[in-house]
Amino acid sequence: MKIYVEDLRFQCIIGILDFERATPQDVIVNLELEYDFQKEFINYADVASNIKKTMINEKFLLLEDAIDKISKNLQENFPTIDTLKLKITKPSILPDCVVSVEDSFHFKS
């Protein structure tokens, strides 16, 4: 079974520049996860909430650190996840483009 969380938008402190540390900025998170659906399901609302809460509370310097921490949190809180693809976008950081970081994780062999 696959779950998609697409275009989860919120504001948080993320980045290494002085103004990024002072003012929350828009981020967009996209996620694809796969799990073996048997008797238990993964609540996508809980997944979205976990991501948002982690990013708002942690105030990461790097998108890469945010992806790493979120993947570990999701694995811990939803142990039936087999694979995870996570992408975080900062749509307004540069005037002429949108930047993103993405990674994939395989939790079970």
Rank of each mutant, 00 (worst) to 15 (best):
K59Y: 14
I93C: 11
L61R: 11
L86N: 07
I67H: 01
D26Q: 06
K39T: 15
K53T: 13
V29K: 01
S104W: 13
E40V: 15
K69N: 07
E20S: 02
C97V: 14
G15C: 11
I51T: 01
V5S: 07
A45W: 01
S100P: 07
I51Y: 03
F19V: 13
L74C: 05
K90S: 12
F41D: 03
I14Y: 14
N73A: 06
E58N: 13
I56T: 12
N30S: 05
L62S: 08
V47H: 06
D7W: 10
E34P: 00
V101G: 08
V98F: 09
F41G: 00
P79H: 10
E20G: 05
S92P: 06
I14P: 05
A66L: 09
N43V: 10
V101S: 10
K39A: 15
L33F: 09
D18M: 04
T83F: 03
I88M: 06
E6L: 02
V101A: 13
K39G: 15
V47A: 11
G15W: 10
K52L: 05
I13H: 13
V101H: 10
E34A: 07
I93W: 13
D96P: 02
I70D: 07
L74D: 00
L33P: 11
E102Q: 13
E76A: 11
E102R: 07
I70H: 04
E32R: 08
Q25K: 09
F107M: 02
A22T: 10
V47E: 11
F37D: 07
D7M: 03
E40C: 08
I42H: 01
N30E: 00
D26I: 00
L17V: 02
E20F: 03
